[in-house]
Structures are given as structure tokens and as C-alpha cells.
């Protein structure tokens, strides 16, 4: 537990001290939320406005945890490698999996913190949600799954791309581009057929749609069918497991 805790505390402090992490994970989604509410939703009938604002809030929550898991994690890993921290840790009785769990818990903490802020801003702007206790519980489970899946992608990028700038740019690119083409920024129905297929299999957009269904009732396709739920869970866990394996085996063992 001590090593997990050490890595967790360092990860949280690193994120809170990083202006770029705070901007991309919290400020940027909040700005888009404001833009969405005051620009994109003009003309939406009053009776749908609250739920539409809720939908945008959920999209920005998804984007926030994607950036937190992918970019912030990849950035801290590549920066720590550049500084030679792994070289130092390899000489110590440290277990890589414990160190990585601490990093992932830090992502979880940072993501939840940003989600709460985005949620408060969204609700203060009039976002409305409609859900049962069971829906809320399921949403939280999928939210955690989304964060873990994003962290898996972050672990892979941080482990495989050696340069700090390269890792940050790649992770940001993956987060922004996949958000744009998978219906996180735009409505699923606006996507061409091929991107709709991608949106169903890319776990972050799938989770975005699942949470949106549970919290606003907006079902864009058979989002909560057993097949879709199973696929989303399996693909998310594959990303997470692949990230963990690559990080502990490749990032630490690489000479």
C-alpha cells in the first residue's frame, strides 16, 4: 500500500501543479460547455433545453476524463522517464504494478475532481438530468470504466512514445480527434455511417452514449443492449489491461 500511496500522492500533486493539465482537463471542457450552452443551443425549444444542456455536460465530462487519462497520464510518464525516475526506481525495491496503480488512482482522483466541477457548472447553467438511483449507480460504474480505459490508452502512449512532446501531442491528438469523429462533440446521428460504427466500438464514445442514456434518457442507438454493453465493457478492459501490461513490462524493463 505504501508504494501505491506514494505514487498516488505524487500523481495528484503533479496534476494539480501542472497548468496545462488543469487547463485541458478542467478549463477547456468548461469553456466548451459555456460555448455549447450560449451558442450551440440557441433556438432549442424550451422543453428540451434542460436535457440538451445535460447532454453537453456529459459530453464535456467524457472529454475531460479522456484528456485526464490519456494526455495527463502520458505526459507524467514521459516526463518521469525523461528525468530518469524509472532508472532510479529500478534500483529500488519498488514493484512496477504498485507504482502504476498509484498513477491510475491519481488519474481517477483528478478526473472525478474535474467531473464534479463540470457538473456544478453545467447544473448552474440549467442542465437537467432524469434518472433513477439504479441509473445513477450504473452511470458511475461506466464513468469509472471510461476513466480506466482512457488511462489504459495513456499508459500505452506514455510507454511507447519516448519524447515528452511526442507523447503529449499524440495523446492530445488521439483524445481530440477521436472525440470529434465518434460523436462526443457532435450528435451520433450527425456522423457518417463509418464513423457511427467507430463510435460504437470506441469505448469512450460508447460510454458517453450509455451515460447520456441513463442520465437523460436520450438513446441514439441500441446503446444499452446486452451486446453493446458487453462490447463496451470488454473493449474498455482490454485497453486498460493492455496499458498496464505495456507499462509494467515495457516502460520499466526497457534499457
Amino acid at each position: 500500500m505504501n508504494q501505491i500511496s506514494a505514487s498516488l500522492v505524487k500523481g495528484i500533486k503533479d496534476n494539480l501543479m501542472s497548468k496545462s493539465a488543469l487547463f485541458w482537463v478542467i478549463a477547456w471542457p468548461v469553456l466548451w460547455l459555456l460555448l455549447g450552452v450560449f451558442v450551440f443551443l440557441r433556438g432549442v425549444p424550451e422543453e428540451y433545453l434542460g436535457l440538451a444542456k445535460g447532454q453537453i455536460t456529459i459530453s464535456m465530462i467524457t472529454f475531460s476524463f479522456m484528456i485526464s487519462g490519456m494526455t495527463s497520464l502520458a505526459a507524467t510518464i514521459s516526463e518521469d522517464r525523461y528525468k530518469g525516475l524509472f532508472y532510479k526506481l529500478k534500483s529500488m525495491p519498488v514493484q512496477p504494478w504498485k507504482e502504476s496503480i498509484g498513477r491510475i488512482l491519481a488519474v481517477l482522483f483528478f478526473s472525478i475532481m474535474s467531473i464534479i466541477i463540470i457538473l456544478i457548472v453545467g447544473m448552474s447553467l440549467g442542465a437537467r438530468f432524469s434518472f433513477s438511483t439504479a441509473d445513477l449507480f450504473k452511470s458511475i460504474c461506466f464513468l469509472v470504466l471510461g476513466i480506466l480505459s482512457s488511462a489504459g490508452v495513456g499508459l500505452i502512449i506514455g510507454s511507447l512514445i519516448k519524447s515528452v512532446q511526442g507523447a503529449i501531442m499524440t495523446a492530445t491528438g488521439v483524445a481530440v480527434i477521436t472525440s470529434a469523429i465518434s460523436g462526443v462533440f457532435f450528435d451520433y446521428s450527425m456522423l457518417p455511417k463509418v464513423l457511427q460504427t467507430f463510435a460504437r466500438y470506441w469505448p469512450m464514445s460508447s460510454i458517453n452514449n450509455i451515460i447520456a442514456y441513463y442520465l437523460t434518457g436520450n438513446e441514439v442507438y441500441d446503446t444499452t443492449s446486452p451486446l453493446n454493453l458487453s462490447l463496451t465493457i470488454i473493449i474498455s478492459l482490454i485497453f486498460f489491461a493492455a496499458g498496464l501490461i505495456i507499462y509494467t513490462k515495457y516502460c520499466w524493463k526497457n534499457e
Binding site: 505524487k10 500533486k13 501543479m17 501542472s18 528525468k83 530518469g84
Partner: peptide, 8 residues
């Protein structure tokens, strides 16, 4: 090389 975390 320096490995300490400069932000801490």
C-alpha cells in the same frame, strides 16, 4: 541525472 520532481 537529476531525477527529483522539480514541482514538488
Amino acid at each position: 541525472e537529476n531525477f527529483s520532481d522539480s514541482s514538488l
